[in-house]
């Protein structure tokens, strides 16, 4: 294959050592694109969680003791008191109690849709919208609520979110490490193939030198060859990946809609990033081959 209009004076096409290159690079690009897509999806998820959660907090008020009737009445009074305090607090935009139906809907996944819920003393939840950036002083608010309303507690979602974000970052870091290791392994493979090719074609290289070829003239031929082989392997690896990424997006859209994970599909920019991988592998292979030839020739006299 002739690239960039360059032609080859070296019979590299028939090299047994370089022919295996695409078959090694295909799985590498495959793994790399999984890692990259996974990281992008993960970061999208973290961003959405962060956005969803940073403008809100939840105040929970434990159900008052007593029979169902009195408990419900007392709890409702507590909720009203809490809402008054919240509404007077600077930084709070809106405080709204969740209705019985909304509560049931929240619990349904765990308890099922049963009338039993109506009988149970459920805690009341107040959904609070806070002004992003200028939220209330949570410690002071918590103290005031504590004093005025028995059994009130604030959940600002930060604790579990920060744990999730920490976990996600660790996974993303791992993915980056995988990509770096794969890039290193690809380079090592190309170095090996190039060195072997140079040893096989030592005589041709000598003749080219005697005729006045520069090291770079020779290096470019190995580099072009490595580029086209790596590109072939990279495209193959990418093709293997498309059904997986497409399937993940489909699954996310149709099975988990509105759920905790949300949209699992790769955003447009992510697709571009993944699509660029074969080219990146090809350029890496080309650069590696070129530098390898230069380094090897410089050591030859």
């Amino acid at each position: 294959m002739i690239l960039f209009g360059a032609r080859s004076d070296l019979p590299l096409k028939n090299d047994a050592t370089s022919r295996f290159l695409p078959w090694l690079i295909a799985p590498m690009v495959f793994l790399c694109s999984i890692a990259l897509a996974g990281t992008i999806i993960l970061y999208g998820m973290i961003g959405r969680w962060d956005r969803d959660v940073s403008g809100t907090l939840t105040v929970e008020i434990a159900a008052a003791p007593g029979d169902a009737q009195t408990s419900a009445e007392q709890t409702r009074a507590k909720v009203e008191a809490a809402i008054r305090i919240l509404s007077d607090t600077p930084g709070v935009i809106q405080a709204r109690a969740l209705s019985q139906d909304q509560l049931s809907a929240l619990l349904a996944p765990w308890l099922g849709k049963t009338d039993l819920l109506r009988e149970m003393p459920l805690p009341a939840l107040i959904d609070v919208t806070i002004s992003p950036g200028h939220g209330p002083d949570l410690d002071a608010l918590s103290a005031r609520l504590d004093k005025a309303v028995e059994g009130a507690s604030i959940d600002d979602h930060r604790v579990w979110l920060s744990r999730l974000i920490g976990l996600s970052r660790a996974i993303a870091g791992l993915a980056v490490a995988v990509v770096v290791i794969i890039a290193g392994a690809t380079s090592a493979t190309v170095i090996y193939a190039t060195r072997t090719g140079m040893a096989v074609h030592r005589e041709v290289i000598d003749v080219l030198h005697l005729i006045g070829a520069t090291d770079d003239y020779i290096a470019r031929q190995f580099a072009d060859r490595a580029f086209s082989l790596a590109l072939k392997g990279g495209v193959l690896g990418l093709l293997l990946n498309i059904p997986i990424l497409g399937g993940l997006g489909f699954f996310g859209l149709h099975r988990l809609q509105g759920g905790f994970l949300g949209d699992l599909s790769l955003p447009f920019l992510g697709w571009i990033g993944v699509a660029v991988l074969p080219a990146a592998a090809a350029f890496l292979a080309m650069l590696t081959a070129r530098l390898t030839v230069h380094a090897t020739l410089a050591r030859m006299v």
Partner: peptide
């Protein structure tokens, strides 16, 4: 010292091409 995998034309063209 001809290159066996190249045609006569390509062998003779080598000095031009490397230049």
């Amino acid at each position: 010292k001809l290159l066996d995998h190249l045609s006569t034309l390509d062998n003779v063209a080598l000095p031009l091409r490397v230049a």
